[in-house]
Amino acid sequence: MPVSDSALMEPKSLSAETAADARLEIKNLNVYFGEGSERFQAVKNVSVSVQQGGSFGIVGESGSGKSTVLRAVCGLVESWDGEIDIDGAPVSHKRNKAFARKIQMVFQDPYASLHPRHTVDRVLSEPLKLHGFDGIDGRVLRALDDVGLGADFRFRYPHQLSGGQRQRVAVARALMLEPEILLLDEPTSALDVSVQAEILNLFAELRKEHNLTYVMVTHDLAVVAHMCDEIAVMQFGEVVEVMDVDAMRNSTPKTAYTQELLKASMGYDAEFFGDS
C-alpha cells in the first residue's frame, strides 16, 4: 500500500485527518471490464484524495488505468466498487442531474468531443436547457468570452474551428453548469505545442476565477508538473507513487518506474536508453 506508507512519512500528504476538507476522495477503487473469464480488472485498489481548490495529476502510460479512474468518478463507467466521496458524501453508481452540476469533464480529442452537426451555440446552451437555467443567451456569450472566443464563434459548426478553438468550446461546455470539479482527460495531447500553451494558460485562469478543483490525467510529465500540485503515478492499474510537484522537479521520486518516466520525458539520451 504505497499510499499509506507515504502518508506516514510525509505530513503534507493524504491522511485521514486531512480528508475532512477533501473535495474528492477515492477509496479502494476497483474497476472491472468484461464478464466471466474475460473479466479484466483495469483499476486496482486506487485511493487518492484531492483537496478543495487543488489540482491533482494522474500520470501513466496507455493501459495504466488512469483514464478509467476518471470515467468511474464521473459515472461513464459503472462496473466499479470501492468508494468515491465528493465533499464527504459517497456517490452512487447511477448519477443524477445534481451530480452533473458538481463534476464535468474535458475530453482528449477536440475533434471527437464536439457533435459534428451541432453549432457552438447548441453545444453550450444544451446543458442549460437540460437543467432549466434562465438567461441562456447571456450565459452562452459570457462562457464564450471566458474561454477567449468572441460572440463571432457562437453560430459556427465544429468544422469551421481549429483544434485549439474546439478545445476552448469543449472547456466552455464543461463550465456551463458551473461545476466545482473539472476532470481533464489528456486535454492537450491532441494539440500543437503552441496551442497547448494557450489551453494550459486558460485552465490556470479559469481555476482562479471559478475556484475550480482539477483532476488531470496525462502521459506528459511536463504538463502535470506545470499544472498540478500533487501527482499520482499509475502503472498496470495501480498507483505506484504519490508525490508533490517539488519532489518530481527535484527528480527524487522513490520508484524506479517513476524515475524512468521522468527520464524519458526529458528527451532522448543515448547512454541511458541505448543499452537497455
Binding site: S194, A204, A225, L262
Partner: peptide
Amino acid sequence: RGLLNALPRIEEPKGRLEALQR
C-alpha cells in the same frame, strides 16, 4: 523561440506559459 518557450518544463516552473504570437 516561441515554440521553445511554449513548452512546459519539468526543471523550471513557470507561472504562465508564453503563448506564441504568430
